[in-house]
């Protein structure tokens, strides 16, 4: 299969860098955030009909670095360089900031809701990853402060089905965490070590058995999950599981890869790169599970005028992708098979 990624809509409004985008779980709304300290919610409509729905300002004192919708679609979390996380709830027809989470020492870089919605994860330049428990009435309680990284933590992502958390860091590694069933303590249960520079982002595939990581070292890496006693004979210590690097995709990206997204509908991988390009990768037919190969099926040169910071596949509408950039724009793309 080949395909072509076509720009269908450009959303203007932010001033300065747009850092992150997040699709509402129903796929009809997109949130974006950036240097101008605002969060913008856009109504997604097919073609070029998408429009600004509302603007959330006054939540943060500095850059809003990342945003994430809860899976129920009722709450939006935003992480800021002002060291706080804000929770916006949809009540009586509008979004209101109902909680501000404090605790990180400096810039919060990423935020993510667990699948069940009962937990929130955040990470910061202070090298820590926090797990927050979500209670009724906008109560958020810190359940764990995880200090597995030796540097700035760039990204937190939850496993799509289980309460397994992954974090990517400036220390070149990805760490995995789980709650220990016996003592209810969150602990680091794995390290993904192979990149030679900052790991900017990561994404799970739809099964959660694979992870793709994107790095400042200009490569993507695919990691495959192995359970104890696997037929391949991959050693699994501590009895849980291990993610092993089974593929390195190099030679395509010429600058840092700031974000990666793995579509749970089409299995396509999209990347946001510092060379102003968006690239789409697909696993080749008859690819070996333990040694998969991926090909670049689409490359949009000059997708934005500057660095691209984020790409996100629409969770409901097949082949629709959102991107945002230092150039102040949010763009919506559509993958067209040829």
């Amino acid at each position: 299969m080949t395909g072509k990624l076509k720009a269908i809509c450009t959303l203007k409004g932010h001033t300065g860098i747009v850092w992150n985008t997040s699709w509402h779980p129903k796929g009809l709304m997109l949130a974006s955030c950036g240097e101008d300290k605002t969060i913008r919610l856009w109504n997604y409509k097919d073609g070029d009909k998408s429009t600004l729905k509302c603007l959330l300002a006054d939540g943060h004192q500095r850059t809003v670095r990342a945003i994430a919708w809860s899976h129920c679609g009722q709450s939006l979390a935003s992480a800021s360089f002002d060291a706080t996380i804000a929770i916006w709830d949809y009540k009586s027809g509008q979004f209101e900031c109902n909680a501000t989470l404090e605790g990180h020492e400096n810039e919060v870089k990423s935020v993510a809701w667990s699948r069940s919605g009962s937990m929130l994860a955040t990470c910061s330049r202070d090298k820590s990853v926090w797990v927050w428990e979500v209670w009724e009435d906008n109560e958020y309680e810190c359940a764990a402060v995880l200090n597995a990284h030796s540097q700035d933590v760039k990204k937190v992502v939850w496993h799509p089905h289980e309460d397994i958390l992954a974090s990517a860091s400036y220390d070149n590694n990805v760490k995995l965490y789980m709650e220990d069933a016996s003592d209810k303590e969150w602990t680091c249960v794995g390290t993904l070590s192979s990149h030679t520079s900052t790991v900017w982002s990561l994404a799970f595939d739809k099964t959660g058995d694979r992870i793709v990581t994107s790095s400042d070292d200009r490569t993507l890496k695919i990691w495959q999950k192995y359970l104890p006693g696997n037929p391949e004979g991959i050693s699994v210590k501590d009895g849980n599981f291990v993610y092993k690097c089974v593929c390195t995709i190099s030679g395509f990206h010429t600058r840092p890869i700031y974000d990666v997204t793995w579509c749970h509908l089409t299995d396509l991988i999209a990347t946001a790169c510092g060379d102003n390009s968006i690239r789409i990768f697909k696993e080749e037919d008859l690819s070996d599970r333990n040694q998969p190969s991926f090909s670049c099926i689409s490359h949009v040169n000059e997708a934005h005028l500057q660095d691209i910071n984020s790409v996100q596949w629409n969770p409901v509408v097949k082949g629709v992708l959102a991107s945002c950039s230092d150039d102040g724009m949010v763009k919506i793309w559509k993958m067209e098979s040829t």
Partner: peptide, 15 residues
């Protein structure tokens, strides 16, 4: 070198 070429660290420093 790593720090001054990390765009996020630079952006945060300037705030």
């Amino acid at each position: 070198n790593k720090q001054i070429n990390d765009k996020e660290r630079v952006a945060a420093a300037m705030e």
